[in-house]
Structure formats: structure tokens, C-alpha cells
Design a protein around this nucleic acid. Structure first.
Lengths: 193, 193
DNA sequence: CGATTTTTTGAATCATATCAACGTACGTGG
DNA sequence: CCACGTACGTTGATATGATTCAAAAAATCG
């Protein structure tokens, strides 16, 4: 049940079997069925999740009530409204299962306890946040500097598995486009090769 | 010379005078004159900087050679091409002084040494990265979900000091707009109040 | 003060959004 | 097993908003 989580942690800091057991003692698991929500905006985000199995989307709603997908998560990815989790503010993000999911969860108290108790857990978190920051920075750069065509091509390159598992109109939303426009972009790309 | 740096660290983890001295032993300083570069794309980013005094901009160039500002930095802010710094890859970002600047610098070896030596330095880095991630996430959300008018209003609210110290066409670049469009947005906002 | 940079304004052009209709695939209940 | 309903993707016509190009006005700097 915690294989994916442990392998992700071990990628960054290698744990002894004993340490693995120690961390797992602080975790819980949760299953979601397709269309169920892990988090709704306004609620407090009590857990950070790591996806053991399944796919989810994170979206926000703008002042006019339109949804904008800000992230997808597949196996091995972490998610949650970090701002809500750490500062105990109402969440601004919604997180919904796109497939039946298995998550492993860490609560705020467990997170704090592990930070104090186990230096490797802090190191893991530092590296995780650093990588998340670098990835988000790269995404922001692409959004600003690439044409929609190039952006879509890059997305397909980097996340072919998302393209396979997620409906196209959600990818359009992620890219900040209407479904119609993405459809036209795709046919434009298909032409030129 | 290290006042701003130390106050920023002490905001997140409180240091004893002794620990302060210990960290400072690993730092160096650098001054830049207006229009000088801290980093050019293609170079290796050898240092992470914290701004003691002055203002800088970070920008990237797109495939057509146009510049896009991705960040500003004023006193107390950290900057550098993290990806280049940590992975020793060529930088993709350019960082230029907009005013005469005083920076304090930490090299990669110093960074690694402090991570090993001083747990508080790792904690500082974890918190710094987490906050940077949350801030960038918020910016991404605003870019996607707010109209340019609302985005500009939010920017002026959150960073009034940047608006005062940075030319308007650079703020336009940061927002992903042409200078002409931002000018029109401003007059539109002025109308409606 | 003169030179350069920055901001504003106007007109034409281009790209995406919007609105609407149609085609297709999928899954469910009759 | 078929028929229907729903969700998804595509295509077309029009409208909206930003970009581009050009030029003038305003502000800044030496």
C-alpha cells in the first residue's frame, strides 16, 4: 500500500527499513472513486496526499465561476493545497479524482512530528519543495514564452501518460484555452507534419 | 552588510549570534551597478543571491528572441537560477540589476556544507522553498483566472514598491502584455473610478 | 537644455473566444 | 442486443480583445 510513497522518498533520501516503518506509522490511506473530491475550496486541507494509484485534477474557480485546471496528478505525485495545509486557511483549490484512486495521506500533526523527529524527513521535504518549485517555474516560463502550439507539443512530450488518461478538454483548461481552440491547434499541428 | 540576510533567516529559524557568525563565514558579497548582469543565460549559476540593497529583474528569451520578465527582486528577496545552481546545467534565466545593488552570495559548496553542518540552515531552506512555491502557485493562479485589469490591480496592491521603482513596460512584460496594452488597461482602470 | 527613454494614442491586423451545430463513441436500461 | 442518452470532440461563422506598427507626447538623465 505504501510502495509508491516509499520509492518516492527513497529517491531523495535513502531510508533504512526501520526508518520506513517509522514514517509509515504516521501515514493513513484513503480511496476515492472517480468524481469524488479529495478537497473542495473553502474546506481546510487537512492532509497532503501522495497518489499510489489513479489520477486527479486540481482546479480553481475564477470570479465568474469558471473552472481552471492548475495541475494533474498521477502515481507518485504529491498534492494538496499547501497554503491551506500549512497556514490553516480555507482552501482555494479543488481536487477531484478522475479515476478510482488510492492515496496515502499525511496529516499536519504527523508532518510536524516527523519534521522534528527525523532529519531525513525534513531533507525529503526540502528536496520535494525545491523540485516542485523548479517544475512550476518551468511551467510558468513555458506559458509566457511559448506559442500555444509549442506549448501543447511540449506537454505531450513531457506528459504523454496524462494525454492518454485525461480528456482533451481538461488539457485545454490546463493550458488556459477553450476546448475548441485546442482542437484546432491539434489539427494545425497534424497538418504541418 | 549582512543585516537583511540575517533578518530574513531569523524570520524563519532564530539563530544565536554564534550561529549567525557561522553562516556569515560561508557568504560573500557582490555589488552590481545598474544594467550589470548577475547571470546570463548559458552561464552556470554559481551563486544564490539575497538582495541587501537595490532591485533586479529576471527574464528569459523565447524562441523568437523576445524577452519575458519572470520575476523582480527587491531588498530581502532571493534570486538565482535554481535549476542551474543545483544541477549544474547552463542557466536559462538572465538576471540584471535595475539599480545599483548589494548582494550577498552563497556558493554551491557553501550551500552543501551548511546543509550538512547546520540543521537550522536546512530548515531555513525548506521553509524558503515552500514559501517560494506557494507564492509562485498564487501567481500562476492569478495569471490563469484573472482578467488583465484585475491582475494589474492585484499587482499594484501586493507590490506597490515595485510599481514605484520599475518602469511600466517591464511590469507589462512581467504580466505577459505589450507596453501599449498595459497603458490602455491603466487608463481603463482610471476611468472606472 | 538637449538627447534618450518611456508612455500614450490611433488604426489595422491577427488570434482566440464565443455561440451554435454536428458527428462520434460509450455505457446503460429497456 | 439494440436504442437512447450523455459526454466528448470537431467544425464553421462571428465577435472580441490584444498585438503590431507608427507617431506623438511626456518624463528622465547627463
Amino acid at each position: 500500500m505504501y510502495e509508491v510513497f516509499l520509492s518516492k522518498v527513497n529517491e531523495k533520501v535513502s531510508l533504512t527499513p526501520q526508518e520506513e516503518a517509522e514514517i509509515i506509522a504516521y501515514l493513513t490511506t484513503k480511496t476515492l472513486r472517480k468524481r469524488e473530491f479529495f478537497l473542495k475550496e473553502g474546506d481546510l486541507c487537512r492532509y497532503i496526499a501522495l497518489v499510489e494509484k489513479g489520477a486527479l485534477r486540481t482546479y480553481v474557480t475564477d470570479p465568474e465561476g469558471h473552472e481552471h485546471i492548475t495541475a494533474f496528478a498521477l502515481e507518485g505525485w504529491s498534492l494538496g493545497d499547501l497554503c491551506s495545509f500549512l497556514r490553516e486557511e480555507p482552501a482555494t483549490q479543488n481536487i477531484e479524482a478522475l479515476e478510482d484512486c488510492e492515496l496515502c495521506l499525511i496529516s499536519r500533526p504527523a508532518h510536524e512530528a516527523l519534521l522534528l523527529k527525523m532529519p531525513k524527513y525534513e531533507t525529503y521535504n526540502r528536496i520535494l519543495m525545491t523540485e516542485a518549485y523548479i517544475a512550476l517555474q518551468k511551467r510558468t516560463r513555458d506559458m509566457i514564452s511559448l506559442s500555444p502550439d509549442e506549448q501543447y507539443k511540449a506537454f505531450v512530450q513531457v506528459y504523454p501518460n496524462i494525454v492518454l488518461r485525461v480528456p482533451q478538454h481538461m488539457i485545454a483548461s490546463y493550458m488556459g484555452l477553450t476546448p475548441e481552440t485546442l482542437s484546432r491547434i491539434k489539427s494545425r499541428i497534424a497538418q504541418h507534419k
